[in-house]
Design a protein around this nucleic acid. Structure first.
Lengths: 142, 142
DNA sequence: GTTTCTGCAAAGCCTTTGCATATCG
DNA sequence: CGATATGCAAAGGCTTTGCAGAAAC
């Protein structure tokens, strides 16, 4: 999706919720929506500073929450402390494989797993709202 | 597995690691290893108190860590705050389905999912050390 | 007797929140 | 101007940790 479209969509959403269009929110949107992997608040904060943008941690948390709620970014946690955020723009659904030796995060998908999951939920009288599927791995031959 | 066996195994492990056999540790073992679902510290604390046992939160955390490290219990987190603990005694591997309306946690397993996972990891040059698979669901027809 | 524990309270870590001031519309 | 944001610092929620007295071996 084109940057302008994303920006326009964000502004539209802000207005529809009586939220104001501020420079901080626009800067955070632009940064958070970049395909830069699975960053925590600290890393995003740094990347913003590197771009010459200064916002408070509080505003960053608050704005990431708006972005998450409105489907611009995903929020995840691999159990190592802080929440991580990842763009959702032009990024289809996937799950995560985390190397416990290097920390590298690899994305994977499996239609088969997805459909088996659906069936399991359905067989129990439920439908899936969201799911977390993380494989903690280490290199073979080590 | 019989209670006495579990107790003996725990004592053996404590000794082998130069840890002392204390009444607190034994009480916590007995409580934590019961098939009482997926409890957080607060709930376990309460259950201990109901049994007339008083230990500090610090000791509870410390002992649950020993039990987790040595395979007596599992540790999990469904993203709602506190870590949860579940017995591993006589409890085969399973994943979790969490109803977002009632909070109910249902266990499920799928050999197919397990083997697809293994293959995905292997195809990427990794082997799985552990995994987290949680389905957040809600009842059909609501 | 020495080593390890326990309980307490304090500290840590990440995230949220109250409030005064600043900014948007 | 009125309504909402921002930044700061304080507070929150859960977990970990330092330390002095207590218990295990």
């Amino acid at each position: 999706m084109d940057n302008q479209k994303v920006l326009d969509k964000f502004k539209r959403i802000l207005k529809s919720e009586n939220l104001k269009v501020t420079p901080q929110r626009l800067s955070i949107l632009k940064e958070a929506v970049m395909p830069k992997g699975h960053r925590d608040i600290e890393q995003i904060m740094h990347d913003l500073i590197d771009s010459g943008i200064k916002v408070s941690r509080a505003t960053l948390y608050r704005t990431l929450d708006i972005l998450h709620t409105n489907g611009f970014i995903r929020k995840m946690n691999i159990g190592d402390g802080a929440d991580r955020y990842e763009t959702k723009i032009d990024s289809p659904h996937h799950d995560h494989m985390i190397c416990i030796e290097t920390g590298k995060i690899i994305e994977f998908t499996s239609d088969k797993i997805e459909s088996i999951q659906e069936k399991i939920a359905k067989d129990n009288g439920y439908k899936i709202v969201k799911h977390i599927h993380q494989l903690f791995v280490k290199p073979i031959n080590k």
